[in-house]
């Protein structure tokens, strides 16, 4: 069992770029590890540094901008598309984020995030644009994500929107349950299925 999540109130890092693919989140050359740890330092590697040189951070990239920090990453439409590499979710979580907010997530990334207790919060395009504009004018703004009430709030204005999550996944995340725990507890049903289906 892992540590569950519920209310996350934090400043955020806005990344107003559409179609962010998992090759950008963690480039393929960093996938050679055989463990799950330490991917955070290479998060958005090629967007953060000139010519792969850590002494040359790109100043205009939000993750390098000291005014932006926090546990919430806010990204534009179709975040996490492309490769199925779970290393992308590991990298974001390892870099200290607990929530990613976007108007649209790619399927596999969304599942990978949920499996790592990194909460993907899907908001309307309108609400997303509102968040971006709030952070443009006030980088120290805070957001509050409440899993129990399935809401996300912009603290200063109180503007709130609700988000969807299945009852099953919500229970898992609140209590720290993994899918694998559930599947392992279903072995009897699985074996019965196999017998009935001639495996």
């Amino acid at each position: 069992m892992k540590k569950g999540i519920n209310i996350i109130r934090s400043t955020a890092v806005p990344l107003n770029i559409e179609n962010v693919d998992t090759d950008q989140i963690i480039p393929a050359r960093f996938l050679k590890a055989t463990n799950r740890e330490g991917f955070g330092k290479n998060l958005f590697r090629d967007w953060r540094y000139e010519n792969d040189d850590e002494s040359k951070p790109k100043k205009d990239f939000p993750l390098n901008n000291p005014v932006y920090k926090g546990k919430i990453l806010v990204a534009a439409k179709n975040f996490g598309c492309g490769s199925s590499r779970e290393h992308a979710a590991w990298a974001i979580k390892d870099a200290g984020f607990d929530v990613v907010v976007s108007s649209f997530f790619a399927d596999i990334f969304k599942n990978n995030s949920l499996n790592n207790f990194l909460l993907p919060v899907t908001v309307s395009e309108k609400f997303l644009q509102k968040i971006f504009s709030v952070f443009d004018s006030n980088p120290s703004e805070e957001l509050e994500v409440n899993l129990t009430s399935q809401t996300i709030k912009i603290i200063s204005s109180g503007e709130t929107e609700s988000f969807d999550i299945t009852h099953y996944k919500k229970t898992c995340l609140l209590n720290g349950y993994d899918d694998i725990d559930y599947l392992l507890s279903s072995k009897e049903d699985i074996t019965k299925y196999e017998l009935e289906n001639k495996f």
């Binding site: 199925s84 499996n115 694998i180 559930y182 599947l183 392992l184 072995k187 699985i190």
Partner: peptide, 23 residues
């Protein structure tokens, strides 16, 4: 036929099953 993440690879190795919502 679809791609999965490593946690799901572990699930399939362990149980030959996955938790999936119908698309």
């Amino acid at each position: 036929a679809f791609g999965i993440g490593t946690s799901e690879v572990e699930m399939v190795l362990a149980t030959q099953c996955l938790m999936q919502s119908k698309p």
